[in-house]
Design a protein around this nucleic acid. Structure first.
Length: 153
DNA sequence: GCCAACGTTGGC
DNA sequence: GCCAACGTTGGC
């Protein structure tokens, strides 16, 4: 079982959107970055947990926890010319982009802001906190996961 | 709105 | 394969 962090802009799709889905499940579509794709396609497994991170938010931070309920499969929004994430180079017979389905496990009563994460001892090595980090899907080490869950008290 | 840090594209 | 130009991400 592995741990992850997935970013989304709350104005686009935040944790409250997910909470309103019929089964609290959503496909994590629209990712168009190869590193992030590789992780969703090859590494994320059913039962893995991920932080739902609000990027470009005020303030940015971790809003809750989701569980991977369906492993990597082709992102069909890449095949749809009317979709904003359409990619003509993705062939349905040889898909370029992949996604997973996630289910809301827990919405934090209070978000853990990026500043709180930075101020918290023990998280200095987290990929999220490193300079220039732009990946929208990234692994989280168990020790960091545990530290963050303990912040909730 | 600014800007650093990447990632992608395309000419050569 | 190199690299400049350009586009995007995302914190501030």
């Amino acid at each position: 079982m592995r741990y992850w962090l997935m970013k989304s802009e709350p104005e686009c799709y935040g944790i409250d959107h997910l909470a309103k889905e019929p089964k609290k499940i959503t496909p994590w579509d629209g990712v168009r970055n190869y590193q992030a794709r590789n992780m969703m396609r090859d590494e994320m497994k059913k039962g893995d947990l991920a932080f739902f991170y609000h990027s470009n938010a005020n303030p940015p931070g971790i809003a809750g926890v989701v569980e991977v309920v369906k492993q990597g499969y082709p992102d069909h929004t890449a095949f749809d010319p009317t979709d904003e994430h359409y990619d003509p180079k993705s062939d349905p017979d040889n898909p370029r982009w992949f996604m997973v389905d996630v289910k809301l496990k827990q919405k934090f009563k209070q978000e853990i802001s990026l500043k709180e994460l930075r101020d918290n001892p023990g998280l200095e090595a987290m990929q999220l906190l490193k300079k220039g980090n732009r990946l929208s899907v990234m692994p989280v080490e168990k020790q960091h996961w545990d530290v963050i869950m303990n912040i909730l008290g």
